[in-house]
Design a binder for these strands. Structure first.
Lengths: 234, 234
DNA sequence: TGTATACAAGTTGTATACAGTATCGGCAGC
DNA sequence: GCTGCCGATACTGTATACAACTTGTATACA
């Protein structure tokens, strides 16, 4: 799944993870050239593991690889954002359905989601608005991973997991809208409630709605300020 | 897309393509150990491109990679077959909808699918039943690629393309049922008709039905004869 | 006889040297 | 002043050598 768990750690793994994180956080802006030698200097590993990391990132779509020219951090276009969210809207409601069924059959899982539901509620009530968005996104991340973990179908699970860095990067490249956080908390509460009620259709609808609102917000923000490293060609 | 088109051809590409084909055809049975040195002897390339090919195959799920032990051709379980078809049933109707819309807007594409529709019809009428299944599968392959090519969403397109080798392998590992071919031709005709009529819902339903029938056939055949390299543990 | 340990073979992980190719600069010619 | 050629440079693609680890076996010992 490559997500929160950290395995043994070959150098290729380490370089991969480090680059992935930096791309996700926007520290490596879209279009940044990633020469193998530069990465060798930067990471201390030799070319072989660096190469492997780059190939993996390319397979995940985080890096564009041109055969005899080199690698660059993949660019983000309006079209790619649309494609990403359309695809997520296809996959994630299905995952939500599976998670709902899994929770209905597993008290342990229900406890987990109940706890998260309470955390979401607490976030909006108790956390000062300064730190609120950070706390919220950290929590939303854990929620996403919980859904992924509760997804039975392996292909679905892996594919959704692979999309997450793209979404995260988008969030980090565009400016966060504090107002959006309030609404997003409400959307997450609705997802939790439907899931805990065993209402698969409701949960699916809730996440579809959430995705639609997220996309709308991103587009609004892009229209306002161009953002750090976004190509608006698409 | 890595499918029918063949690019420049680095050694890593060649090894990757060759192994992929052999796994697809079942010449390399599930569970076969793939030592890097063995592949070096076999392919004439050095370890570096062989390694890269193995990593790529692992990312595609065709090879299982255990960190310090080696690679094996990935095994096929009942559960993995179910997962595969469930996932395809999620993705391919959506692709079919996009292809239908694309065809409605593009006369060139309509001509292509009209031609294919006729070929399907001809297959059942004119081709002697000896060679019929081979001809059919070759045609069905081209149909699949045409759908993939007409799919607008890049994530959807790539994901579906990546699943194809798994399906093909399954077909080649289990015994082909000649009766199934007749029915499958009819299903493809129905898909073509709906697509050409601009009936996205109908096309989506047709492919969903096709997938359901395919899965049922595979399960029937597996119940009958255990097949060549299938684990029935799942 | 059963268990633990040391050894040996084979494998992957990593580093590095070499070869081929694309890019960018300057320079001659028009 | 502009275009086209050509060499230098830097990069990737490939091969190979070395290191670290895992597994299976044989042997010593309780």
């Amino acid at each position: 799944m490559s997500g929160p768990a950290g395995g043994d750690a070959s150098k290729a793994d380490l370089v991969h993870r480090q680059l992935k994180e930096e791309i996700e956080l926007g520290e490596l802006a879209p279009g940044t050239p990633l020469s193998e030698l530069w990465l060798v200097e930067r990471t201390g590993a030799s070319r072989t593991p660096v190469r492997e990391a780059l190939r993996r990132l390319a397979a995940e779509g985080l890096v564009d690889l041109v055969p005899r020219q080199g690698a660059r951090v993949s660019r983000v276009s309006l079209q790619s954002v649309r494609d990403l969210f359309d695809f997520r809207t296809l996959l994630e409601p299905a995952a939500m359905r599976q998670a709902t069924e899994a929770a209905a059959a597993d008290p342990e899982l229900r406890r987990l989601f109940t706890a998260m539901r309470n955390e979401f509620a607490r976030t909006v009530r108790r956390v000062p608005s300064q730190a609120r968005s950070r706390a919220f996104y950290e929590l939303a991340d854990r929620f996403d991973w919980a859904i992924i973990g509760a997804t039975r179908n392996e292909h679905l699970r892996r594919t959704i997991a692979e999309l997450r860095p793209h979404t995260a990067r988008l969030r980090n490249l565009s400016h966060v809208d504090p107002q959006r956080v309030e609404v997003s908390v409400a959307e997450h509460l609705r997802m939790c409630d439907a899931l805990l009620a065993g209402d698969a259709d409701g949960a699916a609808a809730a996440i579809a709605d959430h995705l639609e609102q997220s996309l709308a917000t991103i587009f609004r923000n892009l229209a306002r300020g161009p953002g750090e490293g976004l190509d608006l060609l698409g």
